[in-house]
């Protein structure tokens, strides 16, 4: 392809990426050093926004909650997604599309709607099916929305419910790419089911697993909309995610602390990069070896 044709084809994407990614990113970094109100030029205040963020115990609590729920749920998502993909892969040609369709429902429902529907399972005001089961079993009442760890379990379960179909679907595609010869060889060498998965299949789709982990980490680190219905008391029980904290600080009650919000966004980007570093490095290495 001639250089001119290449430039012509690539330029629309470059322009869109520049406008939608680079400009907002640069503006976010710029605002993080300013005091900014809507529609007005910012005032340079140095590192004050960063100092305020780090001096607020809520910020550190939000970082801690976000990291813990990310690590926990992504671990479950990768393992659960793999197991589910293996099970779906064994289904017959007629059954599989319908099972896949049902499993994909949580993923195509908007996060806020899904979170609200999920919360109703635990809310007596809206039926509270799970609570009814707990009562029927004679177990003590669980305060899903006001007890810290019960609520964390609820939020984590909702995140997994929402993202598991994605993890499963990508893993399923990965499983279908494993060479038949490799599996036959493993079987002839006497490898059992677990051994085959651990030593043959999983390493073969390592890139796919890394991709699932990478996307899930990014998604869970930006946890926000599901917390609105699932954790209405997030601030008081320490279940405020980093993005919810940024929203509460920058916009709640018509707030206009855009500079502080930008500084926290920059810190969130740094956190995302740190948590994704191993996966980015792996992906880059695979790219070089390809």
């Amino acid at each position: 392809m001639r250089r001119r044709d290449y430039a012509l084809l690539v330029s629309p994407s470059v322009i869109v990426m520049f406008a939608l990614l680079v400009v907002p990113l640069v503006r976010t970094v710029q605002w993080s050093f300013q005091q900014v109100r809507y529609g007005q030029p910012g005032t340079f205040i140095g590192l004050d926004n960063y100092r305020e963020a780090f001096s607020d115990p809520r910020f550190l609590s939000a970082v801690s909650f976000t990291v813990v729920i990310t690590v926990t749920t992504v671990t479950v998502l990768v393992l659960g997604g793999y197991v589910l993909a293996v099970l779906v892969n064994r289904l017959g040609r007629r059954t599989r599309p319908f099972v896949l369709g049902l499993l994909l429902v949580p993923y195509v429902v908007p996060g806020l709607v899904g979170g609200t529907m999920f919360s109703w399972l635990f809310n007596d005001n809206f039926g509270g099916v799970v609570n009814q089961v707990i009562r029927a079993l004679g177990l003590p009442q669980v305060l899903w929305f006001t007890e810290t760890w019960a609520n964390r379990g609820l939020v984590g379960a909702s995140v997994i419910w929402f993202l598991l179909p994605f993890a499963m679907l990508v893993m399923l595609a990965g499983l279908q790419g494993v060479p038949t010869e490799l599996l036959e060889s493993a079987r002839m060498d006497g490898a059992g089911t677990l051994r085959t998965h651990w030593s043959v299949i999983a390493p073969s789709i390592r890139g796919v697993i890394g991709f699932v982990a990478l996307i899930c980490i990014m998604d869970v680190l930006r946890l926000f909309d599901q917390l609105i219905p699932l954790s209405p008391q997030a601030v008081q029980i320490g279940n405020e995610s980093l993005v919810l904290y940024i929203y509460n600080q920058a916009f709640l009650d018509g707030g206009q602390r855009l500079g502080l919000g930008s500084a926290m966004n920059v810190l969130l980007i740094v956190l995302i990069v740190i948590m994704l570093l191993p996966f980015i490095r792996d992906t880059a290495r695979e790219g070089r070896n390809a």
Binding site: N89, F98, G101, L104, V105, V108, V113, M117, Q176
Partner: peptide
């Protein structure tokens, strides 16, 4: 290949959308 049955992703996605649309 037991790991390579043909996935009818289109039909699956359509089923998911129909159920989701019904719910929402």
């Amino acid at each position: 290949n037991p790991l390579r049955p043909r996935a009818r992703v289109g039909l699956a996605a359509a089923s998911a959308l129909v159920v989701a649309a019904g719910l929402t």
